[in-house]
Write a protein that binds this DNA or RNA. Structure first.
Lengths: 144, 144
DNA sequence: CTTGATATTGAGAATCATATTCAAATAAAG
DNA sequence: CTTTATTTGAATATGATTCTCAATATCAAG
């Protein structure tokens, strides 16, 4: 996966905020392009550790926070109470279908649902900010 | 709020499972009818404490788990990572509109959205189990 | 290439919500 | 009223995440 665009975005963010461009931060960014999405901090920590054995949890958490602020990552608070981080190449919103057996995350968007959600906000006198929708079920593979 | 129906449900549950009908358990049940819904364990603990000063956190958590098992409560994993418990008089499902300023929870259901969610499951080859949808925005009161 | 100012790191300790342990207390069946 | 199994509360443990702080690394300016 080519993540040069996101790398540039991160670099720009760091420069703008007068933050430093460190080896650790780059390693953590790279995990997302190689190891996939929807990773827990622990998964990221273990993955980075393979390339950079000395890294600590604190750095992982700090960098994830930075990546979220930079709009490169999104933090998901899952039902098991553990946060997962998803790499967000674009700014587009999406929701998730999650398999309760294997835990796979599938990203989905349904424009009709989005429209109805807007209606729900309006009907209840709310000014809409964002939403989150998770559909739990059993994926095709697991139901065989 | 009349919670005699739920009380009966809980009593039946306890009897069926050979569990005991204790003062503490009744107090915790009662909180929901007096103090409202979508409470954190801490809020429940503090509320029960007013009537029953000796109660411990352990009992609160244990009882909340029981109430969930009995189908009287539902546990919500919120974005702040803190679980909230909602009293569920009926078995009917609903979603939430949440104000990001005052934190109020409004329960909503949209049959059309529900239908489209089923379609999303099907389209992606998932066997549906449940879902969760949270709409975050600013309520009428707070946007004045 | 040095220097100096500032940001960052990693180890470990702290925190916060929640769960567990265990001896003492209590409910409920006989 | 006794017996037996369950429940309780206090304290301790846990697991995820955050903070502290001294040592280290980055980077701009000389």
């Amino acid at each position: 996966m080519d993540n040069s665009k996101e790398k540039l975005k991160f670099e720009t963010y760091l420069t703008d905020k007068n933050l430093k461009h460190t080896e650790q931060r780059v390693h953590i960014m790279d995990i997302f392009s190689s190891a996939g999405k929807h990773l827990t901090a622990e998964e990221i920590y273990l993955a980075v550790r393979k390339k950079h054995p000395g890294i600590g949890y604190a750095t992982v958490y700090r960098t994830l926070k930075l990546l979220c602020e930079a709009g490169i990552c999104r933090e998901l608070t899952c039902e098991d109470g553990i946060k997962r981080y998803e790499y967000q190449s674009q700014d587009e919103h999406h929701d998730h279908l999650i398999c309760t057996k294997c835990g796979v995350f599938v990203e989905v968007v349904d424009p009709e649902i989005e429209k109805l959600q807007e209606r729900l906000f309006k009907l209840n006198g709310f000014y809409p900010e964002r939403h989150r929708m998770e559909l739990y079920g059993i994926c095709k593979k697991c139901s065989k």
